[in-house]
Computed example of a mutant assay.
Amino acid sequence: MTTSPIKKAYRALHDRPLGQWIFSAIVSLKAPYFRTIRPTIVSLEPGRGEARMRDRWGVHNHIGTVHAIACCNLAELVAGTTIDFSLPESHRWIPKGMNVGYLKKAKGTLTAVGTIEGLDTLAADEARDVIVSVDVTDPAGLVVVHADITMWVTPRRTAASAT
Rank of each mutant, 00 (worst) to 15 (best):
G80L: 10
G108H: 04
V78F: 03
A112L: 01
V66H: 05
V78M: 06
E89N: 15
M98I: 11
C71G: 15
S86Q: 06
T115L: 10
C72L: 02
P88Q: 08
A79C: 12
V100M: 07
H60S: 02
W93S: 11
I94K: 11
C71F: 00
L103Q: 06
H67E: 10
H67V: 00
G101N: 13
D84M: 10
S86A: 01
G80K: 04
G64K: 04
I116Y: 01
A112E: 02
I63A: 13
M98V: 11
I116W: 04
V59G: 11
E76V: 06
Y102C: 08
A68I: 00
P95W: 07
P88E: 10
Y102H: 12
R92E: 14
K107N: 14
G118V: 00
N73S: 10
N99I: 00
K96A: 12
A79T: 09
I83S: 04
K104L: 13
A79D: 03
T111A: 02
E76Q: 07
L103I: 00
L77H: 05
L87C: 05
H67M: 14
E117S: 15
L77R: 02
I63P: 07
V59Y: 13
G114V: 06
N61Y: 01
A75H: 07
E76C: 10
T82L: 08
H60K: 15
D84F: 14
T115Y: 07
G108L: 01
H91K: 08
V78R: 01
A106N: 04
H67K: 07
M98E: 05
W93D: 03
Y102P: 04
L110I: 08
G118K: 07
P88K: 09
C72I: 01
